[in-house]
Amino acid sequence: MDRRDFLRTAAGLSAAMAAVRIGRPAGAPPPASAPAKRALVVRAHDPAVRVQGEQFDPARLQQMLDKALMRVTNANDAASAWKALFSPKDVVGLKVNCLAGPRMSTHPAVVDQIVRGLRLAGVPDVNIYIWEMKSPELQRAGFQLTSARTGVHCVGTDGHYDADISNSGQVGSCLAPFVSHLCTAHINVPIVKDHLVAGLGVGLKNFYGAIHNPNKYHDNTCSPYVADVNNFPQIRTRLRLVVCDALNAQYDGGPTLRPERLWEENSLLLGVDPVALDVAAMGMIDAKRAEAGLKSIAESGRAPKWLDVAAQYGLGERDLQRIDCVNV
């Protein structure tokens, strides 16, 4: 997808959304705390970032990430951009997504660059947690597990959830400790994929990895549950940034890897509005589905209604007309 495609996607998506009525339901009340400003999703795209196969050029990745974050934060340099969002006192959790294994998981190379950025903001390594539900999934995706006292932690929850239930809307779950008490700030580092049950498996869905019982919340295309999970105060108030790894993306058949439905997008999507970022990513997926002669996600009966609920909760902007999708 090139620069024009990303912008076209935005325009095309709004028309498609109107056609299939997946926007906020007519007559529905506006979000309780509707964002006053337009939302922003920034795409950094560089085909040369891919050296070969799943090998990426760290310098180019760094450039993509910093440029995008500078645009998100309106900062003049990378250090200022990272400092705008994180302080040395923060304990930062990076929720990656590794369920589908190599090629359809968050790339360690992307996470390396985020860690570098956090260092620019003065966040000590020991205050950084890269985490996922299960250690073996992290390993399968190429992460090295670490829990040294001095370095960055890379760990699976592995069943170590809170002993008590926390409630949010219709969700009642034991939370992963990274969410419940360890981290003061979260960076969501999802991937871009179609999801046969939820419709969309990008940023908001990624936090299903923070609850002990995600299997309980897949009815009704995961709605309103995805929104409820993201509305836990421990997530909602601490989410600072979404860095979506769109080096690879999958337009159909997720959440598992379907190599024949994967495309090398060679992009990162960044934003501080998690709903807007998912909306933009869905536009990319739908554009690719159209290219492949497939119906859109919504037309396939999998419209992620939880995006509407998330907007009603005030988690972000659902209306593509109010989202600026910008390339850098």
Binding site: L99, L196, N215, K216, G253, G254
Partner: peptide, 24 residues
């Protein structure tokens, strides 16, 4: 197709690859 429909209990979970039914 790519999905399994569980017929053990009336919930009839439809389960994509690598995923689990409601009961976990």
């Amino acid at each position: 197709g790519e999905i399994i429909r569980c017929k053990l209990c009336p919930r009839e979970c439809t389960v994509p690859r690598d995923e689990r039914g409601y009961c976990g």
